[in-house]
Amino acid sequence: MTAQSGKDMLLKLDQTGAGSFLTVAGLRSRSIAFNAASIDTTDQESAGRWRELLSGGGIKRAAISGTGIFKDQTSDAAVRALFFGGTIRTWQLILPDFGTIVGPFQIVALEYAADHAGEVTFEIALESAGEIGFDVH
Rank of each mutant, 00 (worst) to 15 (best):
A117Q: 15
A62I: 00
S31D: 14
D8M: 03
E45W: 14
L11E: 01
A36F: 05
A81W: 04
A47H: 15
S5C: 02
A117L: 15
A78W: 04
D135I: 08
T42R: 15
Q92K: 04
I69V: 07
R89A: 12
F70G: 00
R28V: 09
V24P: 06
E123A: 15
E123K: 13
M1D: 06
A114Y: 05
A47K: 15
M1H: 03
G19D: 01
D115L: 10
V120L: 12
G133D: 02
D97T: 07
R51Q: 14
G133S: 07
A25F: 05
M1V: 02
F70H: 05
P96L: 03
G56C: 01
T67M: 10
D115A: 09
I64C: 09
R49V: 09
T16C: 04
K71I: 03
E127D: 12
A62H: 00
S46C: 10
L95I: 04
L54S: 06
R30F: 07
P104M: 03
A129K: 03
T90L: 09
V108Q: 14
I32M: 07
I32C: 00
G26P: 04
S5H: 07
D97C: 12
F34D: 14
G57P: 10
N35A: 13
T121C: 01
E119I: 05
G19V: 01
R80Y: 02
I88P: 15
S46D: 07
D40P: 02
F134W: 09
R89Y: 10
I59N: 06
M9L: 04
S65P: 02
L53I: 10
A47N: 15
L93F: 02
I59M: 08
A129M: 04
S20V: 06
K7M: 03
S128Y: 02
F83C: 12
P96Q: 08
V102H: 06
K60S: 09
G85V: 08
A25I: 01
I69G: 06
D43H: 13
A114W: 11
L82F: 12
E119L: 11
L27T: 07
T41L: 11
T90G: 10
H116S: 13
F134P: 00
T42A: 10
D8R: 06
R80N: 02
S55F: 12
D76W: 08
A37Q: 14
T67A: 12
T87H: 13
T42D: 01
L82A: 09
D40C: 05
K12Y: 01
D76N: 08
D43R: 09
W50L: 14
I39M: 09
D40V: 00
I39Y: 13
G118N: 10
